[in-house]
Write a protein that binds this DNA or RNA. Structure first.
Length: 245
DNA sequence: CTACGGTTTCCTGCTT
DNA sequence: CAAGCAGGAAACCGTA
C-alpha cells in the first residue's frame, strides 16, 4: 500500500491532517504495510538508523509501526504534527508529544526515548539474547517469532522493560537491589495509569494491577518481598539481568 | 464454537 | 484513617 503512495506527497494538505484521519484511512490496513526497506526510494529502514537521522518517511514508517505493533489508537494521533524529520522528532518535548498524539503521546514518547537510547532491538524467546534488527528481515518473519522490548503483552515484561529504561520511566519504578532483581514501585498510581494506557483501560488502578502481580508468585515470575511496594523477579522471569536492552 | 492463559474486577479480612 | 497486601471467585478477552 505504501508503494502506491508517493512518500514525497505524504499528507501535503494541512486540512487533511487536522481532520485526524486514521492511518488506515490514509494508507490502508496494517497488513499491507511496513517492510523494512523502502522499495521505492531504496532508503534504509528506520530501524537501522538513529532517530536523529530519520527522514520524514522514516518518521511515518515508525509511527505506522508503533500503531500496528503497540496497538495504539491512530485516531488520537494528529499526523500533521508528525510530518517532520527525525531531527525535529527528537527535539519534540514530552509535552509536544502529548499535544500531537493525545493519550498515545505518552507511549510514543516512551518508545522513542527507548529507541534513541538503545536502538531498535528484538528479543528471541529461545535464547533471550538481544538482537539488533538489521535490514532484510521480512515482516512476516518479524511478526512470527520476535517481539520488540516494548511490545510485550504481559504485565511483568512491561514492568521489566520500564525498569530497564531508567531514562524513560520517570521514576515510576526503581531498583532496590539490581543484582537480586528486587525493585520498588515508587509511583503506584502512575504505574497503574501507564499500564492502563497500554491495555487501553482507563479504569486500571494499582489495587488491581497488584492483584495481577500477586498471581506471578504462583508461577515463579515474581517472589514475595515483605515490604510495601517491593517485588522481586523470580527464577522464571528472564531478561531483567541484562544491563541495557 | 471451545479451551485456556492472563489478566481484570470485586471482595473480605489483615497489616503497615 | 489511607494505602497496601493476600488470595478466592468469577468475569473478560484475545488467541489457538
Amino acid at each position: 500500500m505504501l508503494d502506491s503512495v508517493s512518500h514525497n506527497t505524504f499528507v501535503p494538505n494541512p486540512m487533511i491532517c487536522e481532520s485526524l484521519m486514521s492511518w488506515s484511512e490514509l494508507f490502508g490496513t496494517p497488513e499491507d504495510s511496513y517492510m523494512p526497506v523502502d522499495h521505492q526510494t531504496g532508503d534504509s529502514s528506520w530501524t537501522s538508523i538513529h532517530p536523529q537521522y530519520w527522514s520524514r518517511n522514516h518518521v511515518c514508517e515508525w509511527l505506522q509501526f508503533c500503531c500496528d505493533q503497540y496497538k495504539l489508537d491512530a485516531n488520537c494521533i494528529s499526523f500533521s504534527h508528525f510530518n517532520i524529520d527525525g531531527q525535529q522528532l527528537c527535539n519534540m518535548s514530552h509535552e509536544e508529544f502529548l499535544n500531537a498524539a493525545g493519550i498515545c503521546g505518552e507511549y510514543l514518547f516512551f518508545i522513542l526515548q527507548n529507541i534513541k537510547a538503545h536502538g531498535q532491538y528484538l528479543f528471541f524467546p529461545d535464547d533471550d539474547k538481544p538482537y539488533l534488527r538489521t535490514e532484510g528481515l521480512k515482516s512476516q518473519e518479524f511478526q512470527s517469532h520476535s517481539r520488540t522490548s516494548l511490545q510485550s503483552s504481559h504485565l511483568w515484561e512491561f514492568v521489566r522493560d520500564l525498569l530497564l529504561s531508567p531514562e524513560e520511566n520517570c521514576g515510576i519504578l526503581e531498583w532496590e537491589d539490581r543484582e537480586q532483581g528486587i525493585f520498588r514501585v515508587v509511583k503506584s498510581d502512575a504505574l497503574a495509569k501507564m499500564w492502563g494506557q497500554r491495555k487501553k483501560n482507563d479504569r486500571m488502578t494499582y489495587e488491581k494491577l497488584s492483584r495481577a502481580l500477586r498471581y506471578y508468585y504462583k508461577t515463579g515470575i515474581l517472589e514475595r518481598v515483605d515490604r510495601r511496594l517491593v517485588y522481586k523477579f523470580g527464577k522464571n522471569a528472564h531478561g531483567w539481568q541484562d544491563g541495557k536492552l
